[in-house]
Amino acid sequence: MPALVDLPANSTSQVARVVTEACAPAVFAALMPLIIALHSTAPAVMTVLGWALLAILFCSVVPYAVIWVGVRRGRLTDHHIGVREQRRRPLVYGLLSVLVGLAVLVVLAGAPRPLVAVFGPALIPSLAIVVLVGWSRVRLGDHTIGQVVAGALAGILIAVPTFVLLA
């Protein structure tokens, strides 16, 4: 298959590295609540920003801190957790943090629905980012095409029912 843009291999690796870092889960988990808060039509923007900061704490800061501490202590090789056997503990802690954060936002605090369930179908065009990130991970040799496809399918199978339940 011919490339859309004919870049030297070194350039495509650099583009792939930028995409991988800029679209890392911790980055998205920090940016999305802010974007949603700013997009919200709530009259109390500061209140919505407070909700966003709470979501960022549980969905980005805590999970990334677990990874950062693991790297600093030598238990994890890098912030992308490139060694598959090292992924279980950080993923479990990250998932627990997100679930606690979701419980706080939904049950205890009554956060606005757009912050909890995101944008739903309006977010479909962002699937292009998923494709771009998948390409970057394969290009860098961090994942195979099969792993990228399996991850995308798993994401869809988790995201759609979650949105339906929370929307």
Rank of each mutant, 00 (worst) to 15 (best):
A29M: 14
P90N: 06
S11G: 11
A65S: 14
N10C: 06
V100L: 08
P8G: 09
R73E: 03
L96M: 05
L38Y: 10
T12C: 01
V92H: 11
V66G: 04
V118F: 15
L157M: 10
M46C: 06
Q86T: 12
R113Q: 15
R72W: 04
L127S: 12
A167N: 13
P43R: 07
A109V: 14
I67Y: 00
P8H: 09
Q147R: 05
S60D: 08
V100T: 02
A159I: 10
V116R: 05
I124F: 03
G134C: 02
L95E: 07
V48Q: 08
T12I: 06
A128D: 11
L31R: 03
L123Q: 12
L123K: 00
N10D: 15
V27P: 04
G146Y: 02
M46F: 11
V164L: 11
S136T: 03
G50P: 07
R139C: 10
G134I: 05
V66T: 12
V62Y: 08
V164E: 06
S13F: 09
L127G: 13
G134Q: 09
G50Y: 07
G141M: 05
V62L: 07
P8T: 13
V100E: 00
A9P: 15
A152E: 02
L31Q: 03
M1P: 14
R75Q: 14
H79Q: 08
C59S: 13
P125V: 01
E21V: 15
A42P: 00
G151C: 12
G110M: 11
L95W: 13
P90S: 07
V48W: 02
N10G: 08
P125N: 03
A122K: 01
D78A: 02
R75L: 13
P63I: 00
